[in-house]
Write a protein that binds this DNA or RNA. Structure first.
Lengths: 135, 135
DNA sequence: CAAAACTGTAACAAATTTAATTACAATATA
DNA sequence: TATATTGTAATTAAATTTGTTACAGTTTTG
């Protein structure tokens, strides 16, 4: 997997600590130490999930889209998730093989079970919980 | 993440079904539809964990290293795991920022919790269970 | 109204990671 | 001794991820 989840949590934690004050993509990028355009790109996605509000224009910036105790880390996980946590092979198993023919179906089911377990775990932790650690 | 876990499970399932008969890397590669050298590379790793036995020479090949009901999918996961399931960002957060300074420690702890949950889940499933689905 | 400071978005480039390929030495069998 | 296989390394190719640049659109402020 990639670092999207970590970036997302970093952004959300900064916004939580800002307590409603708007933060710019440049400020956020400075804390994470990545490019401001990447921050905006990541935020675009999180905003689509209602996790972040944005304001355009001269005094624009970002703030949390919901109360931090109403944002489960599972919401963040779902928002950034592109592949199953177990990974995803890109081979095309041999359909002439009895195992190859069926294995993807069983591997996919397994991957779903694992993702469900992760979501179960992350549902119990809110952004407020996580952010609390910095206070 | 990548497809190592799926490849490993595919290999182990084939070996389980072979019931002790040795399979060659070429045969295995044909079922997975990847290169035999990749199969051997993946097997080298699994062998280091005792999950597979190999025999060199003309009539060589591979077989399971343990009874299939004694191989938990968690063992496979641990063998192939290179990154935490949540991913791993490669930025270096700004140490001059109160959040940036501490966040990796908290993110790492979270990643460990999630990996532990995954292992908990996969500990309950054996290769025998998985392979059973093909019978 | 015009300048300034932002976000929003796209296009492109660079870096990293993953997978594939090739080659050949080492080993065991027949 | 020929053959079929594993073991391993080196290299190449492909895919993915990350970084960069650019600029249009929006809102505020003088």
């Amino acid at each position: 997997m990639n670092g999207q989840f970590q970036i997302a949590i970093h952004i959300l934690t900064l916004l939580e600590q800002a307590n409603g004050e708007l933060l710019s993509s440049e400020y956020i990028a400075g804390s994470i130490n990545i490019n401001p355009a990447l921050v905006r790109k990541e935020i675009r996605n999180l905003r689509n999930y209602g996790l972040i509000n944005s304001k355009e224009g001269k005094t624009g910036g970002y703030s949390l889209g919901k109360a931090p105790d109403n944002i489960a880390l599972a919401d963040v996980y779902k928002a950034v998730k592109s592949h199953p946590a177990l990974g995803q092979a890109k081979n095309l198993p041999n359909p002439a093989c009895a195992i190859g023919r069926q294995i993807n179906q069983h591997l996919d089911a397994l991957a779903t079970e694992v993702d469900t377990a992760i979501i179960g775990k992350l549902t119990k932790i809110t952004l407020a919980d996580f952010s609390q650690k910095f206070k």
